[in-house]
């Protein structure tokens, strides 16, 4: 219940955040909504020496539409995304996913950037961001770079983010035919398995498919075999079922815990792939 002592700093700009982080050596961590970090600190599973509060950096806030894409600041809360008219109109899967995270209070506080940086293997957002091929905009001392979500999540709680970098925003092309389907872990309500499907449809034909998965393995990733199985196909119950059937085939190191064995999780990957694709196709 009680975290270790730490120093508190507050940044008012992205650059200040980066320099404060640099100053703190390897002791520093960014604090935005704190809803991934603070629970760990209270259990003393994370003991940073310096917390740099980035919640008041104006550049990290806001949801904007630009050149046919949506950009969401890293500091935008789940509740803001869930209730954003813009997102709900252009890319409802993102709002729906945000509305599935935690509970109302957690959504009022937790942020998109925090969720991505923390990269909990059972978090909801990563699946959707992977499926959307969202770009994660990152700034470091050397300037800006962008990473595709599919490459951003590298391992358990490990992402493509250097010690001195900050996530500023996420940008993606909105998708109409997209859905996120999730099996709730009944205690935490994290995803035992969550699958996001983003389809480019032409009539009944799927021109291309992008599938992101969370909960099943150490980090969110694409289901490439399902993507190719769907691409170019007319989506019928049979083609969807056939694609879903192979959904777990290429997964390695599937998570095992009290709530689900590997065998069950693999089957749930199939089940929720089918559900997500069906739902995405039917929109």
């Amino acid at each position: 219940m009680i975290p270790q002592e730490f120093q508190y700093r507050r940044a008012t700009s992205i650059d200040e955040a980066i320099s404060l982080l640099k100053e703190s050596g390897d002791e520093g961590k960014f604090l935005a909504g704190g809803h991934s970090l603070v629970p760990l600190m209270k259990l003393r599973l994370s003991e940073p020496g310096v917390l740099i509060d980035i919640s008041r950096i104006p550049q990290l806030s806001g949801i904007t539409e630009k050149d046919g894409t949506i950009q969401i600041g890293a500091g935008v809360t789940h509740a803001e995304v869930a209730s954003s008219d813009l997102v709900r109109r252009l890319c409802p899967v993102v709002s729906e996913c945000a509305a599935e995270i935690g509970d109302p209070q957690v959504r009022n506080r937790g942020t998109l950037g925090g969720s991505l940086a923390h990269a909990d293997p059972a978090a909801d957002y990563p699946a959707v961001m992977v499926a959307l091929n969202a770009e994660v905009h990152i700034k470091g001392p050397g300037g800006w770079r962008a990473v595709k979500s599919g490459d951003f999540f590298q391992d358990l709680f490990t992402v493509d983010l250097a010690e001195d970098e900050i996530i500023a925003a996420v940008q993606f092309r909105p998708a109409r035919n997209a859905a996120y389907a999730k099996l709730h872990q009944r205690a935490s309500h994290y995803a035992l398995v969550g699958v996001a499907a983003v389809l480019e449809m032409e009539g009944r034909t799927c021109r291309s498919a992008s599938i992101g998965i969370t909960g099943a393995t150490g980090h969110a990733q694409h289901l490439a075999n399902v993507e190719s199985a769907l691409s170019g196909k007319e989506l019928t119950p049979e083609t969807i079922a056939a694609a879903a059937r192979i959904a777990a085939d290429d997964l390695e190191e599937v998570n095992v815990d009290l709530h689900a064995s590997e065998e069950y999780r693999r089957d749930m990957v199939r089940v929720f792939t089918k559900r997500a694709v069906e739902q995405a196709a039917s929109r």
Binding site: L43, R186, A187, S188, L258, H259
Partner: peptide, 11 residues
């Protein structure tokens, strides 16, 4: 104890 918090013990 595997169910040592509300994360694993479903309330």
């Amino acid at each position: 104890l595997i169910t040592g918090s509300f994360m694993d013990y479903a309330m």
